[in-house]
Amino acid sequence: MRFPEYSAPHLAPATSVGLVMRRVVYAVVPGAAVMALLFGWGVLLNMLLAVTTALICEALMLRLRGRPTGPYLRDCSAVLAALLLALALPPLLPWWITVLGVAFGLIFGKHLYGGLGFNPFNPAMVGYVVLLISFPREMTLWPAPAFIGGTGPDLWQTLVYVFSGHFPDQLQFDAISRATPLDEVRVRLGQDESLQAIRGGPAFGTLGAHGWEWINLLFLAGGLWLLRCRVIGWQIPVGVLAGIAVPALLFSLIGPDQYPGAAFHLLAGGAMLGAFFIATDPVSAATTRRGRLYYGLGIGILTWVIRTWGGYPDGIAFAVLLMNMAAPLIDQYTRPRIHGRGSA
């Protein structure tokens, strides 16, 4: 009897890129669902637009680059990047802005660098930052979460707004919009209001900010599940969360009236989504174990710095891109000592 010849190891591989990416997609679902409950149809519409754009861009770019589309589309990495970007976008955004962000992220942030595995920057965050810089007003207009304002736009109103830029029947954006908690705190602190006064407003819950704390807790749950399946390691999320929480805690002890505490920082913005889903993108992160901890810490600290003193309400996207740049250097200085060798 004759047999084919293969090289060792012969054991079936335990996992695949597709499986890894799909698990991350599953893990994002609970948080995304709560977000949709709070902010309405716009969240779902964003995700749908983003994923569709991603699939089209990915197929197109693969075709142009002469790569097989099948296996690369099945790896789900484009879908995941699009979903993460969509979750970072305000729920009511003109459709073309979403499309533009996703397309830019994937084409310029990923394929022009050589596609999967070769992009030095997180494609979702590339798309996000480009939009944030190009459309600062649109990108910071958030509707109030459902159980504060009570009445979000329905599906029809959302569709009309997203595709035409206006609400039907005299509904005004201003009537339903409100700044995100992070934004509000930043602006009002800038006007010398005390944190005590700001906190009294209806936007702030006991832990973080009304609504947002639930979103964050569910992203946290999804992230913990990923940790348990060993899809991600603990180093990056722990680094990011510690990087945000520790300075927040210290400064809030020093100046409780000017600096919001750790809980607020962790639960009011995109901290959990960033820590467990965005910063953990393996391609653009540091790759050594110790390096990942530093990488995460860097993102966390930068995020807190940007939130506290920078020009943007949330700093995760910038922090991630900055640390992407540092990743190769971090890797170089955190190579583990090879077993059997003296200190290397």
């Binding site: 084919p4 293969y6 090289s7 591989p13 695949s16 890129v17 890894v20 296996p71 690369y72 790896d75 990495s77 596609g115 999967l116 595995g117 070769f118 390691g233 393996p282 391609v283 992160a285 790759t287 050594t288 174990r289 990942r292």
Partner: peptide, 12 residues
């Protein structure tokens, strides 16, 4: 049989 290789995603 071995499956086709994809690029390294640096997952570690």
């Amino acid at each position: 049989a071995p499956q086709p290789a994809m690029p390294c995603i640096r997952c570690g």
